[in-house]
Write a protein that binds this DNA or RNA. Sequence first.
DNA 1: GCCAGGATGTTA
DNA 2: AACATCCTGGCG
Length: 204
Amino acid sequence: MPSLTEAFFTRDPVTCSRELIGCHFHWHGAAGIIVETEAYDSADDPACHTWFRPSTRAFVESHPAGTAYVYLNYGVHWLFNILVKGPHRSGFVLFRALEPVSGIDAMRQRRPKIRHTHQLASGPGKLTRALGIDGSAHGTRILLAPHCRITRPAPTATVTAPLTGPRIGISRAQDLPWRFGHPHSPALSQKFPTPPAPQVAPPR
DNA sequence: GCCAGGATGTTA
DNA sequence: AACATCCTGGCG
C-alpha cells in the first residue's frame, strides 16, 4: 500500500479529510483504519482555533503541511490534527476515530476498561489515548518520522462516498458538513444524520 | 439503554 | 469564561 507524503496535505482541508477515510494510520506499532475525520479551515471557519487564537495562526504560518497539531482539550484529552496548507485554503484535519487493526493488545493496555475492540479509538480523545499520542507529537512532521505511516488502500478498496455531516461538539458553524465517516463502520464516535430523502423518485 | 455532572489545563 | 471530550453513576 502506498504511503502518503506531505504532498497529500498541500491541498484543501476538506478534500484531505474526505480522502483520509479508509486510509490506514500506523503509530508506534499499532494501526487502524481511519473511519472518521473533520476539516477545519484556518481562514474563515469560526470553529477553527485560528479564529480566536493568535498562537494557532502563527503555527499555521510557521510550519509546513503535514505537521502534527496536538492540543489538550477540556484539560483532559489530547486531540490529534494534521496541518493542511494548500494553494488556496489551509487548515487542519482532526482525526476522530479509528477502527483498530493491529497492536490491539497495546491499545487495550492503554485503555484497560474497554471491552470491545471497536470502542478502543471511537472518538478523538479515545484515539490518542489508544495510540499513546500526547503533546510530545505537537509540531513534529509525523510523515517524516519512522514510527508513523499513513497508507492508502488499493483503488478498489477506496471509500468513494464517505458519510458527511456537521461537526461534533462545537457550537459555531454548525451548517458546514465537514465531518466525514466510513459507511457502516462500528467504530464511529457517533451516528451520522440520515441523508435527506431524494428529491426525485428513483427510476424503477 | 439514557442523561446529568464532574474532571481538568490552556488560552485569551 | 470558554472549550473540536470522556467516563461514571443513577435511573429505569
